[in-house]
């Protein structure tokens, strides 16, 4: 069971309080009707499936209730960092996964 840093609670808390919510930084288009079928398909279904550091969404569902983003290494299953929804993906090049 992982400890996950909630950027709203500013605390590392048990994984049991959290729920995974898919890949991060996929914004719902402002005007979906303007998208071609292919563009809409990509928005709906196409995900990066990263091997390595992955930007993903979590919700502190059994805590403060907030959705937030995190960078997690999918190989080691270790979190690099977490940040609030709406914030840009931090540059973590060269940074070691957090313990």
């Amino acid at each position: 069971m992982l400890l996950i840093q909630c950027p709203y609670c500013d605390d590392a808390l048990p994984e049991l309080e959290f729920a995974y919510a898919g890949e991060a930084h996929i914004d719902r288009p402002q005007d979906p009707s303007a998208l071609s079928d292919e563009e809409w398909r990509d928005f709906l279904f196409i995900r990066s499936n990263v091997k390595g550091v992955h930007a993903e969404r979590w919700r502190h569902i059994n805590g403060c209730g907030r959705f937030f983003n995190a960078l997690r290494d999918t190989v080691s299953d270790r979190f690099v960092t977490s940040y609030k929804a709406g914030e840009p993906r931090p540059d973590t090049s060269g940074k070691e996964p957090a313990q």
């Binding site: 729920a19 919510a21 919700r59 569902i61 959705f67 929804a85 709406g86």
Partner: peptide
């Protein structure tokens, strides 16, 4: 509720 919170918090804050 989770789906509503998701849209509210992350798409339409």
């Amino acid at each position: 509720l989770n789906m509503m919170e998701d849209y509210l918090q992350t798409e339409w804050p």
